[in-house]
Amino acid sequence: MAWDWQVFCQDTLDREAVQGCFGKGGDITYLDWMLSAWGWTVSVSLLSLLIALIVGFIIGTLRTLQGRPWLVRFGDAWVELFRNIPLLVHIFMWYHVVPAIFPAMKEVPGFVLVVLALGFFTSARIAEQVRSGIQALPRGQRYAGMAVGFTTFQTYRYVLLPMAFRIIIPPLTSETMNIFKNSSVAFAVSVAELTMFAMQAQEETGRGIEVYLAVTGLYIVSAFAINRIMAFVEKRMRVPGLVAASGGGH
């Protein structure tokens, strides 16, 4: 069977060809639909990444605090809980279980619930990397901060975390790429991202090869862009003499 890339120029309702491949006057082509789905994928991924970074750095820091064992145990419990339950189960728990326990959550869009689930899931892995990064630093850096009169909070803010961030950029790059790939599970709760588009478009058009190749290409473009951005950040922030942490989350 010959490939037919003109399928993306067809109207999604009447399957008529649309000149220029972009719909007008309310018409939507499969190309319009795919680009919209790509936007949803990027939105889910970036918002989840933001949550994962914030929560992951907090939890990872808590796991390295000295003299506060209850905070360390809380951080350990968080990591083990979210790291050892499959992502799809997390999605279903946030979509079905949490609203049943807290009825107010029934009004929250599925998009938000997916972002929370994916963000918290990834935060456990980032927390492990942050812990590894902090513990990879020489102990003298912590003592130096204390010696100049910094509080524990100031020592982490101005000394430990900036250095730890620099040495965990390589494993953090992998997690950022993973979060884009893992966003595909959002189709399970009807978020209109790339994987859902591919499944529905293939059923409607019968052009699975073209549809899935195009979607795969968009995932590759996204991953490559992340890789280049993080490589640029790593180059600008590299500290001579420091070896990157191995990333305990892998």
Rank of each mutant, 00 (worst) to 15 (best):
R63D: 02
T173W: 06
V221T: 01
L87K: 10
E193D: 05
F187H: 04
G145Y: 13
H96Y: 15
T155I: 06
V191Q: 07
L81R: 08
V108W: 10
G60M: 02
T205H: 05
M237D: 09
R131P: 02
I51Q: 00
I179M: 06
T12E: 06
L81W: 14
G39V: 05
L81I: 15
F197D: 00
V72Q: 11
A2Y: 12
A2W: 13
T61H: 02
M105H: 13
Y95C: 05
D4G: 11
Y143G: 10
F120D: 04
Y156D: 07
G249S: 15
L213V: 13
L31A: 02
E128A: 09
A52L: 00
P69D: 08
G25R: 03
V191K: 02
A223L: 08
G208L: 09
L53R: 01
F82W: 14
G25A: 03
G26K: 02
S222V: 00
L218H: 01
I51G: 01
N84Y: 07
S48Y: 03
A223S: 05
S48C: 00
Y212D: 05
F180M: 09
M230P: 10
A225C: 10
S36F: 05
E80Y: 12
G20W: 04
A244E: 11
Q200D: 06
V89H: 06
S222T: 04
M237E: 11
I220M: 00
A104M: 14
A198F: 00
V79Q: 07
G39P: 08
M1H: 14
L242Q: 07
A188T: 09
F187Y: 14
F224D: 10
L116E: 09
